[in-house]
Design a protein around this nucleic acid. Structure first.
Lengths: 85, 85
DNA sequence: TCTACATTTCGGTAATTATCAAAATGTTAT
DNA sequence: ATAACATTTTGATAATTACCGAAATGTAGA
């Protein structure tokens, strides 16, 4: 949940990327890991699970992997909760 | 989640109570337990946790304990998810 | 192709969670 | 006050989860 929240407004929660301006493809794993306080391997696993689940979109640029929100499923999930909770 | 969903429309998911008409105060622990397939003690614990969390309202009538949804917190929770997810 | 660095995968362990059966407690009617 | 039944509490265990460090893999540039 925190990760999704942070990724809503990357510029508020992460240092700017030099390579890729304006967080076009989201935030790199390193930054998300630092912010979360979890180990690199753990955050990598989390993100990859979230990606498989369809919550985030992965874009690779060179050595870096960027993640951004996949709004479609997130919306769907909230709608589901709204009708089933 | 299932419990909250069932309690949305008790008449659709539970047999009618004789004592208390129209599910005024919700559904008794026994029925919820049967529906869930969990043991009596487990369901009792769940419901009591949910009550402490503010998701359901407990009403005792004689030997029976009835639970119904507490819409206030449920709404609040969905709103929270909507803005933080 | 070798080095440096980013990320992922693997294998393990500690902590947490789900669940139950048995014992305890509440409640009503006799 | 006691029997009968509903519910809660307790104590336990199996299953799952969170998390890490180390090894493996991917990638760009010298």
């Amino acid at each position: 949940m925190n990760i999704l929240f942070w990724l809503k407004e990357p510029e508020k929660h992460f240092p700017p990327h030099q390579e890729l301006k304006h967080f076009r493809d989201g935030v790199c794993v390193q930054y998300i890991g630092e912010k979360s306080g979890l180990s690199q391997s753990t955050i990598s696993q989390y993100l990859s699970m979230m990606q498989k689940a369809g919550l985030v979109i992965l874009t690779r640029h060179g050595k870096w992997t960027y993640y951004k929100r996949d709004e479609k499923l997130i919306k769907k999930y909230i709608a589901h909760l709204k009708s089933h909770l």
